[in-house]
């Protein structure tokens, strides 16, 4: 109990610090500042898009992971979880080396089509997907592994082909795992900083998400940084609570 309280305190104290130090007189003014709305809008767009991409790519990846065994599985799993342990800045550099103008894929893209990914909103989305998708994959893989496989066997015995089994049985049964994975993924994407600043740069309206705006503001206007942080916190809390009621019924 005491340890649990201590753990909770570790979360609550920094939050309390933000709230106590917030320049409440300036909150309205900072909120109405166009840069705030721009950064917040961009943050929500990028994090939601990243989560959507992670769902499309991550669910099949989790399926493959849950169905492999032995060395292959260890290798695949390590690869998938790599972005979780990699410092995000290193992830950003790695993304540059892959998608940058001189990168593995970026170079031909640039030379053939004149497309440059870094410094674009696409880059911000890629950076967030790269960093956040493992959370989704791990959650769904866990869900798949704990899924009673007899549900799928029962469906097959009733004549359902692989696609019908997946769509009508596996996917619905995985809903809680998919939901919690998507929420984790989205939250991680929303807070993403290191990979984004390294790979996508920092330009208001294009790649400057709220965490980047907070960091920049910290250099010049610490009060604005605190307000922005509180806004990010409030928005994520509101969305998390709202989604919970909507998707999981009663908590």
């Amino acid at each position: 109990m005491a340890l649990a309280g201590l753990g909770l305190l570790l979360f609550l104290l920094p939050l309390a610090g933000l709230v106590v130090r917030a320049p409440w007189g300036q909150v309205g003014q900072e909120l109405l500042a166009p840069q705030t709305a721009t950064a917040l809008g961009l943050s929500i767009f990028c994090s939601v898009t990243a989560t959507a991409i992670a769902l499309v790519l991550g669910i099949p990846l989790a399926l493959v992971l849950s169905r492999t065994t032995g060395t292959l599985r260890s290798v695949l799993r390590a690869l998938t979880t790599l972005p979780m342990v990699l410092p995000p800045v290193v992830g950003g550099v790695a993304l540059l080396l892959a998608f940058g103008r001189r990168g593995l894929i970026g170079a031909p893209l640039y030379q053939l089509f004149g497309v440059q990914i870094p410094f674009t909103t696409t880059a911000a989305v890629i950076a967030e997907t790269f960093v956040a998708m493992p959370f989704l994959v791990i959650a769904i893989e866990g869900g798949l592994r704990s899924l009673d496989q007899r549900y799928e066997e029962a469906a097959r015995a009733l004549g359902a082909n692989s696609w019908k089994v997946f769509a009508r049985v596996t996917l619905p049964l995985l809903r809680p795992a998919i939901f919690s994975g998507a929420v984790l993924c989205w939250a991680r994407a929303l807070g993403e900083f290191g990979a984004t600043i390294t790979f996508a740069g920092n330009l208001p309206g294009r790649t400057q998400t709220v965490p980047l705006a907070v960091y920049i503001a910290l250099e010049s206007k610490p009060e604005a940084a605190i307000v922005l942080s509180l806004v990010l916190l409030a928005v994520s809390l509101a969305i998390l609570i709202g989604l919970r009621d909507r998707w999981l019924g009663e908590p």
Partner: peptide, 9 residues
Amino acid sequence: ASLEPQVTG
């Protein structure tokens, strides 16, 4: 294209 928070960037 970007306003880097540090010159090193």
